[in-house]
């Protein structure tokens, strides 16, 4: 059925203008170079193919993180969420991690999810840091509200930065939010936020040309196999 654009105009939340996230590269512990770049809305179907196998992985709360991320990205694709964005980590074109969030208002960011598809390389840490970098440095926000749904997330965000506990209910589950204020970000930046810009043209073109993803079994094995870390 064709879209009723008159009705869509009512259903679609208004959007804040959002500055683009400039891509960067990060050298990982294994020497591979990860391109971190902003996804376009048209990338969502390809991204969801990588998220889908994670829906059925109970280990480390991958199921709930994936399920929510799947819904959030779909909402973005279908114009049912306000001012959402998504950043991707790609190595040799392969999708290795995803982060997303949105602008709650012009000054406050709402962190959504961080999903590392390749593990043991601190990809989640790098991508979460890129997300905070986007909110504070490029969207010009004063703070970001965050919750963790897994012990690993709690260790990586709440403790490593460290974040400040508030009593503001978070959009994900309604629990108390932790706050990354600008001053916390700037203090943590030298030890947690890295990356090189500009990205060499051939690397960016490779990443943008196609979002490659491993098959479902490989993704499950990487995340929840015997060697899962």
């Amino acid at each position: 059925m064709p879209l009723d654009m008159e009705l869509e105009a009512v259903l679609r939340p208004t959007q804040y203008p959002m500055a683009p996230y400039p891509p960067k590269t990060i050298t990982l512990a294994n020497g591979k170079v990860m391109v971190v770049r902003q996804a376009a809305r048209e990338d969502v179907p390809a991204i969801l193919k990588s998220v889908h196998p994670c829906l059925f992985i109970e280990r480390d709360y991958y199921d709930i993180v994936s399920a929510r991320l799947y819904g959030e990205l779909l909402a973005w694709y279908r114009y049912r969420v306000k001012s959402e964005y998504c950043l991707l980590g790609q190595v040799d074109g392969y999708l290795v991690g995803i982060v997303n969030g949105r602008m709650e208002n012009e000054k406050v960011g709402m962190s959504y999810h961080t999903l590392a598809i390749d593990r043991g390389l601190r990809i989640g840490s790098h991508l979460f840091a890129a997300k905070m970098e986007y909110h504070i440095e490029y969207l010009g926000q004063d703070e970001v509200l965050i919750v963790a749904e897994s012990p690993i997330g709690f260790r990586r965000w709440m403790i490593e930065y460290p974040l400040e506990l508030t009593h503001i209910p978070h959009e994900l589950g309604g629990g108390d939010s932790y706050r990354l204020a600008r001053e916390i970000y700037l203090k943590a930046k030298p030890r947690l936020v890295v990356g090189d810009r500009p990205v060499p043209r051939e690397l960016l073109e490779e990443a943008e040309a196609e979002i490659k993803f491993a098959d479902d079994d490989t993704i499950r094995e990487r995340i929840a196999g015997l060697k899962g870390r």
Binding site: T27, A29, R122, V193
Partner: peptide, 23 residues
């Protein structure tokens, strides 16, 4: 072996990114 991942000198030592990779 539990860990079947070779490390790269640049990634964990020389690169400025090593501060996150190898804190």
């Amino acid at each position: 072996a539990h860990v079947e991942m070779a490390l790269d000198r640049d990634g964990i030592f020389d690169s400025p990114h090593a501060i996150v990779n190898n804190p």
